[in-house]
């Protein structure tokens, strides 16, 4: 097995990156436990209980409901029960608002939808954002740059809740091209995905442009230019790899941000995703559900951050060196 120095360097970098990721992954569990514990106690201190409704139920009923969900026990007994269920059975508890479902079932049913939407939106955002950014950087200060960056800034300045109804009005109600809502065929997915993706695409475009401009000013690019390599080759072979680093480091928070940000899109397009529970569960004192979605969100965020770290370490020569 003869390994070239370059391959060996890559392997060493990979090992380092994996170690880094492992450390991060191991740190996830205690971090999540702290988050969940904080949330558990904070939520129960908030005024109002999960069974309060407009019409007061007879006290006998309230007592029965509280007893059924062990809310009549002491806080610490509840915490112990919740923690045991979580750690030993992976059970996030019952949902108060929808007693026919457990939190596990709800997350199991809604997370895939949100992931689907989020991943597609992320791909679309990258597919739009990176080329826009590359155009901006390659044609810096020319009309192509102005146009692409103007588009990006507009994308950043129009909230999704304005964008979504506008798109629906134009493409569904006006032109009758696409369905107005719901999550069925690929045609149903176009508007929500575009709507979720556009602001992210705008951000990606700006990041790409900034990153590329920085790299294009670097010494090794000058050297490459001096060697007479074509601009295109310099841009796509040499610069892009380093220039995309800011985008890569944004992917982690960006993806989990899309999950929460999809809340608006899910609401407007009636998509059965997880985003809505961040608000709903908090407002209806659905303790276990809120803790559950927060844990899932936190875990996703941290795992995607760890994954990004690995990718980063593989791409960035400076990290590899240290």
């Amino acid at each position: 097995m003869t390994a070239s120095p370059r391959a060996r360097r890559t392997l060493a970098g990979l090992a380092l990156a994996l170690r880094l990721a492992l450390v991060k992954l191991v740190a996830i569990v205690p971090t999540l436990l702290i988050v969940a514990t904080l949330l558990f106690f904070l939520l129960r201190l908030a005024p109002g209980g999960p069974f309060d409704r407009e019409r007061a139920a007879p006290p006998e009923v309230m007592r029965a409901l509280e007893h059924k969900y062990h809310l009549d026990e002491s806080l610490f007994a509840q915490y112990g029960r919740w923690l045991t269920d979580l750690l030993f059975h992976g059970d996030l508890g019952p949902c108060f608002k929808y007693p026919h479902r457990t939190v596990n079932e709800i997350i199991g049913a809604t997370l895939p939808v949100s992931m689907h939407l989020g991943l597609m939106a992320l791909l679309v955002a990258l597919a739009i954002g990176i080329p826009l950014g590359v155009v901006g950087a390659a044609r810096q200060n020319r009309w192509q740059d102005t146009l692409s960056m103007a588009a990006a800034l507009v994308g950043l300045s129009v909230p999704r809740f304005v964008l979504a109804p506008l798109l629906v009005l134009a493409f569904s109600l006006g032109l009758y091209w696409l369905p107005v809502a719901r999550w069925e065929s690929w045609r149903h997915m176009i508007l929500p995905v575009v709507c979720a993706a556009l602001p992210t695409a705008a951000y990606v475009a700006r990041l790409t442009r900034a990153g590329l401009i920085e790299i294009l000013g670097a010494d090794f690019i000058r050297t490459a230019r001096a060697k007479g390599l074509s601009e295109r080759r310099i841009l796509f072979v040499h610069a892009l790899r380093g220039g995309l680093l800011p985008v890569v480091s944004y992917l982690g928070p960006g993806f989990s941000g899309l999950l929460v940000g999809s809340l608006v899109v899910e609401k407007i397009f009636n998509i059965p995703g997880m985003g809505r529970y961040f608000v709903e569960a908090a407002l209806s004192s659905d303790y276990a559900l809120l803790t559950g979605v927060t844990l899932v969100y936190g875990a996703l965020l941290m795992v995607s951050n760890a994954a990004v770290d690995v990718a980063y370490a593989l791409l960035d020569p400076r990290v590899r060196g240290t």
């Binding site: 109804p165 569904s172 109600l173 369905p179 107005v180 809502a181 719901r182 609401k267 009636n270």
Partner: peptide, 18 residues
């Protein structure tokens, strides 16, 4: 029975005959 609690989405679905 669809479960659409956003009234705009509901009106849009009705309008397009869903």
């Amino acid at each position: 029975f669809l479960q659409v609690n956003d009234v705009q989405a509901c009106l849009n679905l009705y309008r397009t005959g869903e």
